[in-house]
């Protein structure tokens, strides 16, 4: 029966020591420990969040990088293409221009030849005309000489007669 009868002394000492323990630990130990644990949990949570965020940012950054790279590549391709086109165009233009020039040259040469030819022909014609006139003149002269001589003779005769 003694075992289940609480003794006054034990009740007193238990109350006293437990209250002292509760008071001191409750004032100096538990708040400090609980706050420290909480603070650490918070910091771990923050660190994890920050890590997640960093990961996300990294992913975004990587995606951005890829995009930028792709854009750069595309731009490069476009530039290359443009340059090539330009080059082709330049070459084509140059060719065309050259051809045109050549054509023009040929044209002018041809014109000049034509002109020269016409001039030469004209010259020739003139010469031939003059030659033929000369020939005709000569012939005429020859012919005329005969008649002229006759005429002159006549004339002389007349003239001589008249003078007399």
């Amino acid at each position: 029966m003694d075992l289940v009868t609480p003794g006054i002394g034990m009740i007193f000492w238990t109350t006293l020591s437990f209250l002292i323990l509760l008071f001191i630990l409750g004032k100096f130990a538990w708040p400090a420990i609980l706050t420290a644990i909480r603070a650490r949990n918070e910091s771990i949570r923050h660190a994890l969040e920050a890590a997640d965020k960093a990961k996300e940012e990294m992913a975004i950054l990587q995606a951005d990088n890829k995009k930028i790279l792709a854009e750069a590549r595309a731009e490069r391709d476009a530039l290359m293409k443009e340059a090539k086109e330009m080059k082709d165009k330049l070459i084509a233009d140059a060719k065309e221009k050259a051809a045109e020039e050549a054509r023009k040259l040929v044209q002018s040469a041809r014109e000049a030849i034509q002109r020269e030819k016409a001039a030469a022909l004209n010259d020739m014609k003139e010469q031939m005309v003059s030659i033929s006139v000369d020939i005709a003149e000569k012939i005429l002269r020859i012919k005329l000489e005969e008649s002229k001589a006759q005429k002159e003779l006549v004339d002389k005769l007349i003239n001589e007669a008249d003078l007399n």
Binding site: L25, F28, A29, W30, A32, I33, I37, A39, R40
Partner: peptide
């Protein structure tokens, strides 16, 4: 009680010291 005080007060001190 003495052991508990010893343990937990020193624990509280070490928690203050070690931060996070």
């Amino acid at each position: 009680v003495a052991i508990l005080l010893l343990v937990f007060l020193s624990l509280a001190r070490s928690y203050k010291k070690m931060g996070t």
